[in-house]
Design a protein around this nucleic acid. Structure first.
Length: 296
DNA sequence: GGAATTTGACCCTA
DNA sequence: TAGGGTCAAATTCC
């Protein structure tokens, strides 16, 4: 993991130099390739981190919830009995885990329970959507993190089927069992009604009326980003690592209708998500190297 | 007085 | 059978 983080930081530093250079075409490695490699370093690091945590929790009995209590007494024979008491609600595609400094997410929730969890210092709180009796099955569990008590881990189950929508997009640590390490932002519309999708935006042709090409691009890409950032600030989310931006379906249509091509191929999704961030934030000096420093 | 929260009891799963 | 998830009566809040 350390090796991958160092590689990533090195690539980010080179990308920064490239972007600051008035003659970027003279660099041997293009920015696009560096971005791909940076994204790969993030993925590899998170993959290593994930497998390491898994191994640790299997070897050390007394760790916090997340798989701890299943290991039990070392004298016990491995088998069915070792899973006793390890009941955990099964996660589905609608299950999302968010780590945040606040429990607030803009939705109306009603607390229906609180439990002391084995080996957890803090109780787990259970919430359901206020509109349960209108048929909304959305629930969430909130638990303070043992190692970082000012941080809450919120697990969402089921999508809101009511008209309630959160104010801000969310930092989602994993939204899909197939991609357990994906760190992504998901727009409210996408979170409520559509499965997570990473989309990319490339300018293919411009068919604007009175706006210049730059104005059109700016209006399409910058405004949602500013809303997104504003939403983050208002809701207290301060993520340290950003890897991709997930666009709502309505915004994809908006982008497409203005002459921008969008695609969702897995191979390039991370790259263009990263490109978007670089373009919009314009602060590459701090973002990428610091991401790796934070992880490191 | 209605809505939200608390909390002990019960249910479900592995 | 232990422990996580949910229910519902009691309590608190507005």
């Amino acid at each position: 993991m350390v090796v991958e983080l160092l590689k990533g930081r090195d690539k980010a530093t080179r990308l920064r130099a490239l972007l600051q250079d008035p003659r970027p075409h003279q660099h041997p490695v293009p920015a696009e390739q560096l971005a791909v490699e940076i994204f790969r370093s993030f993925s590899e690091s998170l993959s290593v981190l994930s497998s390491g945590v898994h191994v640790a929790s299997a070897q050390i009995p007394a760790v916090d919830s997340g798989g701890s209590s299943c290991s039990g007494d070392s004298k016990k024979k491995p088998g069915v009995k070792d899973r006793r008491g390890c009941y955990k609600r099964r996660r589905t595609a609608d299950t999302r885990v968010i780590v945040s400094s606040t429990m607030e997410d803009g939705c109306a929730w009603r607390k229906y329970g609180q439990k002391v969890i084995l080996n957890s210092e803090y109780p787990r709180c259970y919430y359901r959507c206020t509109h349960k009796y209108e048929g909304c099955k959305a629930t969430k569990q909130v638990q303070r993190i043992k190692e970082d008590p000012i941080t809450y881990q919120t697990t969402y189950f089921n999508k809101h089927t009511c008209k309630e929508t959160p104010r801000a997009p969310h930092l989602i640590i994993h939204s899909d069992p197939i991609e357990p390490n994906l760190i992504s932002f998901q727009a409210p519309e996408a979170q409520d009604h559509t499965p997570p999708m990473i989309h990319t935006v490339k300018q293919e042709s411009y068919k604007g009326d009175n706006l210049s090409e730059d104005q059109a691009k700016s209006s399409l890409l910058q405004d949602p980003w500013q809303d997104f950032m504003g939403g983050l600030e208002s809701s207290g989310y301060k993520p340290a690592v950003w890897t991709s931006m997930i666009m709502s379906s309505s915004y994809q249509e908006e982008v497409a209708s203005a002459g921008f091509h969008h695609s969702s191929d897995d191979q390039s999704a991370g790259l263009h998500g990263l490109d978007l961030e670089v373009d919009q934030l314009g602060d590459i000096d701090n973002i990428l190297p610091n991401c790796f420093d934070d992880l490191y």
